[in-house]
Simulated assay, not measured.
Amino acid sequence: MKHAAGTLLFIARFAILGLAMAFVVGLFWPGSGERLRARFGLTESVHAPAASQPRVGNGPVSYADAVAAAAPSVVNIYANKIVTEQAVRMYDNPVLQQLFGGQPTTYQHREQTLGSGVIVNAQGYVLTNNHVIAHAADIQVLLYDGRIAQARLVGADEESDLAVLKIDASNPPVIPIASEDPRPGDVVLAIGNPLGLNQTVTMGIVSAIGRQLNSSSAEDFIQTDAAINLGNSGGALVNAEGQLVGINTLLIGKAAGAEGIGFAIPVTTAKKVLDQIIATGHVVRGWLGADYAFVPVAANSGLPAAARGALVTNVYPGSPAALAGIKPRDILLRIGSEDILDPASLRRSEAALKPGSKVEISGLRNGSPFHAEATVAQRPAMGTNALSGD
């Protein structure tokens, strides 16, 4: 009995000593118990609360860094135009006024158009919208740092609604340009001079890409719900890193029953126009001289609403398409080495062709394959451009 009591006392002493050592280790080396249990495979799976788990695709709390990278390159444009209007000059003699009413005349007055632009290289070239500076007698640019520069029009492209200006300013801030096209759902920021308020930033997402705003044009647009107001035209649409993805050009307002629908010219298109205008002063596009529509499919065929290819709806007399024997109702499937997906892809491929070059065209006529060779012409001017944001 005495031996058993001694054994219990011995065990109790070591238990108390072990607890004391565990307390000291836990006090000075917290977490060592969990590491030991993990080492010997004694851990239990513990799930963190759902609220503490990071969400995929978390965006930044602030876009101030993106704005700081892009905003210095966005400029305000003031285009002064001399406008001539019809008027009636009244006669001084009351009798002549009563007999003839007045004498038709014209008068001129100065109007100023507000817009935005983006400095795209260190030589001082500025991209803006054609409708901002069209018919301007004098163009002034206000830089981010307060400098005012006189701008010279290098060239304009009515079809894409782009214009290139040149300013003489030392060390102009150049906007970084995105290397990848934006995707629907990407966050974008519109920076510009809405309503003359200077350097305003609005945020939205890319709503869609590849939008066609003119059935006869080869250009496509980025649709965004970032607020674009009068004066934003020609300003920058940038991504969340402050890189240029588009040139803001057009809004559809509440008068049309729209809310949050704006459009920007993709930077890939803007760069091509910029390079051509700097090199030659204008933009050259290929032209076959035909109008196209989607290929119709019977409702009971089980196929998509529009099949691959483009349906020829009209061929202009004397055009390359007419000389090549292309006819209305032909379905075009391939141009050169590229498959035709739809009318928009055909117009882009056609515009990229060099005038004077020959191109092979293949398709279906009354269900049978056919091939033709056309000599590409230069696309004629479109005339009055319907695109205008200001």
Rank of each mutant, 00 (worst) to 15 (best):
Q199M: 11
P60Q: 06
H3Q: 10
V295G: 09
L323F: 03
Q378E: 15
Q223P: 00
G210W: 01
T268H: 14
Q97P: 12
Q140I: 03
L230C: 00
V132L: 13
G281I: 05
L364R: 11
G367F: 07
N130K: 14
Q378Y: 12
D275I: 01
I340Q: 04
G124P: 10
T313Y: 05
A4W: 01
A178H: 10
Q378I: 03
N385W: 00
A169R: 04
P355A: 15
Q150H: 09
H47V: 00
A322F: 10
I261L: 15
P296Y: 14
A255C: 02
G31V: 07
P72W: 06
A226C: 10
V24W: 02
G204D: 09
G302R: 11
T384V: 15
Q53C: 00
V25P: 12
A169P: 03
E111T: 06
Q243W: 06
A20V: 09
A377G: 11
I331T: 10
L250Y: 05
D339C: 08
Q86F: 06
Q98P: 00
S62Y: 10
A48K: 00
P104C: 11
D390Q: 09
A134W: 10
K271E: 07
D145P: 14
D291P: 01
I148G: 07
V141D: 07
K327P: 01
K81E: 12
G18H: 04
N366T: 00
I247V: 12
V174G: 00
S160K: 11
A122W: 06
V376F: 03
G234R: 11
L36C: 02
F370Y: 13
E373M: 13
D339K: 15
